[in-house]
Design a binder for these strands. Structure first.
Lengths: 351, 351
DNA sequence: CTGAAAGCGCTTACAG
DNA sequence: CTGAAAGCGCTTACAG
């Protein structure tokens, strides 16, 4: 039962009667190997059940074959984030093609976070993707000092060096928010509120600014904003605060699905019908949002595609290509049943 | 702007006027180094900004410093799984102590899955944790053939070699389900239904069997079971099917929160009040469940602890210790507002 | 097309 | 307490 020593490239070479170099070449194809010896080598490898040692290859090539992803969020929040796992799945898709993997790190302090990046830079990963970017994120400087290739994922175009020159995969969250406000206004709503994400997150801030701008365009008062933190708890509390007002909103635009769903639930429990009494929208297109009753109007973020693009961009940078910013916009509004005319609207306002 | 060559242990040794071996020892502490040279070494390292290369160390020690986790689920489903990210967070906690990392792989075909395990075994990970275990899971044989240390996470004690002798971290989901049924029965429910998870998953099957057994114990009919697949979509459909019956249940026990939440939403949309008209319970204790209105009675699975224990167990196995099964039971019912007496019950049945 | 050898950057017996 | 050297298992110029 004691594990037999694993075969090495040397064993295969000996077995096939060639040099180690030739075995290596037969697999990499970096230089031609005669069909005959190639076959001998494959047979020997098969017989010895040999697979190249990843560790040895990593040292020889100075490439680890992994990229790093560090998440500095409470696991509770991570759990409920529809974006995250779709994003990872997109990353995997292209990593697999390149025979690479994803090193995931969950940290809870910024001290631990710094340490993790240092370890990654010490050869545990060939590069990293920076998620949940904050305004003037300290990681920008950190990765550059560490010489660690990185791409940042942002919700706005880094026109003025917002991402410190690091290659950035960005989308623009604004149009979807504008469209959502437009739909609500069109349905006849005037008192529209926004439950925002934290302002220090770019995607929190952008969605909020887009809300304000869209309301202004519609000639409406865009000041009814409550800041949440993307958790269900904060969604419920913010909603309670809004509904408790003397002049409660007739529509609420939430910065993510999670907050929208707990908000929806609270509204229901207060006897409000959605969408008849209250219209709402989310952001993220989580699986749950599509199967609620009524289903939640939300925004699909193209998370899988962004994962793919982010990794592709990172690999290009690692390969030494000139870093560039790339627009990855698959953001689109998914209209579902949670928006209707406000209460008291005549059944049909024919044009 | 061209990246300066990174310092190596040789540079540090030269700088400090010692041998490479001594530098290594100064850091590992595996053998004593005089305080004076030790300081010289640290100073040199500091000045040259040296950190040991993980790749080189990995080859020299035959240890990769990472464990693998492969998830064979639709990203949509993963996204909404409260267990998963808490579990990962628990893993990280102990991995960090050991200066190790987590290689995460998301696969969508069993073909891809096999390939990933082979890669992991080829030196990309020192061991793996097997999640979402199925009955007679083919991975049991695979990891053993590959000589890849593994621990499996199960929802029942592997008394009869269910996990092929692999060290197993198990909990028992039954008591919580029994308690839930008990609470519902106690409240006066007799028509209690179960929306189950797929039967080929151990945790799906166990919860279902526990439901049947508990109903039997209560002298109730436990045949009202609809199989879902843990997604919100299936939760909604199963609930519709139940509520459409001539004799709909007055209480529904769901195999996870996600199905319970979409079920709750559907019930609401049909004008049923929860818990006045329908009592429900979930399983997983997701963040959302606590902030719904009413909050969802559910089961906390101790996912963080299980992650910690799983990794601890795996590291012990990697270190060559005798593999054993370990009970990791932090499963407990979290009573919240979603269970009450069935409709038509006199206000208070004083004992 | 193939071989011999150096090199990737550490760790760890082996001597002293 | 410290040094010189071998070894981890590959890849890749360099010769032929």
């Amino acid at each position: 039962m004691t594990a037999p020593r694993k075969a090495t490239i040397g064993d295969v070479a000996r077995h096939a009667g060639v040099s180690k170099g030739t075995v290596s070449l037969a697999y990499s194809g970096k230089r031609p190997v005669s069909e005959e010896t190639r076959q001998r080598i494959f047979d020997a490898a098969e017989e010895l059940q040999w697979t190249a040692s990843h560790r040895a290859r990593a040292l020889a090539t100075s490439r680890t074959g992994a990229i790093g992803l560090v998440v500095a969020r409470d696991p509770e929040v991570l759990a409920t984030d529809a974006f995250f796992s779709k994003f990872i799945s997109g990353c995997e898709r292209v990593l697999a093609e390149h025979d690479m993997g994803l090193m995931l790190h969950a940290v809870t302090s910024s001290e631990a976070e710094r340490l993790v990046y240092e370890r990654l830079a010490a050869g545990r990963a060939d590069g990293v993707i920076l998620l949940d970017v904050q305004v003037e994120d300290p990681r920008f400087e950190l990765v550059q000092r560490l010489g660690l290739p990185a791409v940042v994922l942002s919700a706005e175009e880094p026109t003025g060096g917002e991402t410190a020159g690091l290659p950035t995969v960005y989308s623009d969250d604004s149009p979807a928010v504008t469209e959502l406000v437009g739909r609500m206004a069109q349905a006849g709503h005037t008192r529209i509120a926004h439950v925002a994400g934290p302002d220090h997150y770019i995607h929190g801030r952008i969605r909020r600014e887009a809300f304000a701008a869209a309301m202004r365009e519609q000639g409406l008062d865009g000041s009814l904003v409550v800041e949440g933190d993307f958790t269900a708890a904060s969604g419920r509390d913010a909603t309670a605060q809004l509904l408790d007002r003397a002049d409660p909103p007739t529509a609420i635009l939430y910065a993510n699905d999670m907050m929208a769903i707990s908000g929806l639930s609270l509204a229901h429990s207060r006897g409000l019908r959605v969408p008849e009494d209250l219209s709402i929208s989310g952001y993220d297109d989580s699986e749950l949002s599509a199967h609620l009753s009524p289903a939640l109007t939300t925004v699909s973020t193209g998370a899988v595609q962004r994962g793919q693009i982010a990794v592709t961009t990172l690999l290009a940078e690692i390969a030494g290509e000139q870093p560039r910013h790339v627009l990855a916009d698959h953001t689109t509004v998914v209209p579902r049943g949670s928006i209707a005319a406000p209460p008291g609207t005549p059944t049909r306002t024919a044009p």
